[in-house]
Design a protein around this nucleic acid. Structure first.
Lengths: 191, 191, 191, 191
DNA sequence: AATGAATGAGAATTCATTCAT
DNA sequence: CATGAATGAATTCTCATTCAT
């Protein structure tokens, strides 16, 4: 049917199905049927169903980390960089809403060792984002009475939650939501 | 074994296990074993595993809605009422972290009809909370360039996310987190 | 609700449900709910679900045997008596189609000892009916090249089968079917 | 164990057990044990226990319809063709007494959609058989005061009932019973 | 690289029956 | 007479994974 290579087809079928029904409610049989291949083929490319999920996480994390690194390294004032980082992550979360849904509700279904790996990657992202806030606090641009950690968790809760309420056919574009969220974050940090 | 009635024992065993391992990864067998009863007893009181989850949701929603209604009806200035409402929901989410965990990751495992019922209850809560923001916007106390809906979703994402990062043996008490979150919310709404 | 005594209510609820869904597909819970009583009440009057079925069989068998005895003992010529007997059993099978359905498809669900008892009663009925044919054969009214046993089984197959195809809203009345069946039987025996 | 392929082994184990104990009283576990395979293997080939039953019905219906079509198409006089058709169906019902037993007592345990399919097949058989009677009625060979439909139902009741009383170690061979039944049918139709 | 038959462990649910009250 | 909580065994079906080909 498709010209895409088998592993990519499996990954996108799995992404769609995991987001739709959840990891546990999606059978390997359904994934391979949606990808138009057989079970044998899947187990040829991926060691387990778990591996598929892990690979999906990996893809998202790499993408978002790259984006964030670019923004952090730009020469803009810290306030503008935080605004851009926040807005970017919202837009990309909305653009990949299936990935966001999975992220937000399937982490605990990974095997412990893979969960640990994902958390470590996530941690790096978190630390990088936090460093922006800390920089602003040192520079006197952001308030200092809120621990930077708390602020990061506060904001990323909102981002993960997008998958719950955002509808692409709704009133607001991804960019508009990104701007609103970034405004709320940056303004909440005014000293 | 215990003096508590069977349904309550089942409900608390289920709450703990659903939070620990997720709804799909928890078997009815495990629940009844933890509650010290037989499967037949469980099906005597609850029509299905799904019912158990639905009941847990119902309990949380009733509790939080009651709290919110009290705060909304108090005579305080709107800004203080929003701060109290936000702080309260954070504290009660932390006090019942198992319920929060379940809420945030198992809703999509409810049967469609029950999911609809829960969403309707949730909606009422959301509307009530939103009305506080709208009131502040009308009174000129809060900025008007952010739709109240977006602000509510922004904030409740953060609240649901608490279950992901909050540890009761950590640095901050529930009350402290509540204050931080409420401050961030209210300050982000300064005109 | 009803003024009828509890055992009769149970029996008629069970008859209807067994005919509708079969013995194994009908739960005791459904029977007692349909009769408007509780399980305890049922077990007060009937020793088991099996007992209910046995009682239903008993009722039908007593009724049909009484009818047959009357016809056999009438002073009519044997050919008329066989015709009447055949027609009567068809009419009464149609009048009690639920009983007939149960008879025809649930005998093997009785416990072995009860099945034996029912078969013995059935046997008496069979022997009595057969005696009419044998009498006709001795008198030269009926052909003698067909064993009377075979003829009885041939005919009662047709009767049991009524439950499969007869519809009370159909073209033919019970009496008409009775006449047709009796004609076919008696005419098939012409020497 | 056996050289026969798995699906055939399952089918014959199921046939035997369904006839012995009835569909509802036979567990999938018993079937796969008798066939010497695992449950997983059964569900690999058959979608459900119901499918097994449906397949058994299909086999019988195809066989009997083929036989009947041959007889109907032969050049014999209609009376001889009806006699042969009747006799054949008796003999083949006795030769496959397990199938006949199942047919006669388990149809109502099929799922509604499958029951409909079986009934449609059965209907075609019925229509074909009836056409023989109608032909004889048009030709003046058979009486016309009995609807052909009624006659067919009358006769097939007798045939289904064979499973209830026929014993292969009894007095009469399948062929003898076939002849008796066919004689009774054809003679009952004499004008 | 890919197939598809087969496994085996475990899932949720049902149900006739008992028994203390 | 009647209740309804509780039992415990059985039931159908699902599924990730393996492996010979």
């Amino acid at each position: 049917m498709s010209e895409e290579p088998v592993p990519a087809r499996l990954l996108s079928a799995a992404t769609r199905l995991f987001a739709e029904r959840g990891f546990d409610r999606t059978s390997v049989q359904e994934i391979v049927a949606a990808a138009g291949v057989t079970k044998g083929a899947m187990y040829h490319y991926f060691g387990s169903k778990d591996d598929l999920l892990h690979e999906i996480y990996g893809r998202v994390l790499r993408l978002q980390t790259e984006q964030l690194e670019k923004v952090v390294a730009s020469g803009e004032p810290v306030s503008a960089r935080l605004h851009a980082a926040a807005s970017d992550v919202v837009v990309s979360s909305i653009d990949n809403l299936d990935d966001t849904t999975i992220f937000f509700q399937s982490m605990h279904q990974l095997s412990p060792s893979k969960r640990k790996a994902v958390r470590a990657d996530r941690r790096r992202y978190h630390v990088l984002f936090r460093s922006l806030i800390e920089e602003g606090q040192r520079d006197g641009v952001f308030r200092t009475d809120k621990p930077a950690d708390i602020v990061v968790d506060f904001f990323f809760g909102s981002v993960h939650h997008l998958a719950v309420w955002y509808r692409s056919d709704g009133r607001l574009s991804a960019q508009e939501v990104g701007t609103h969220y970034a405004d709320l974050l940056v303004d909440s940090l005014r000293p």
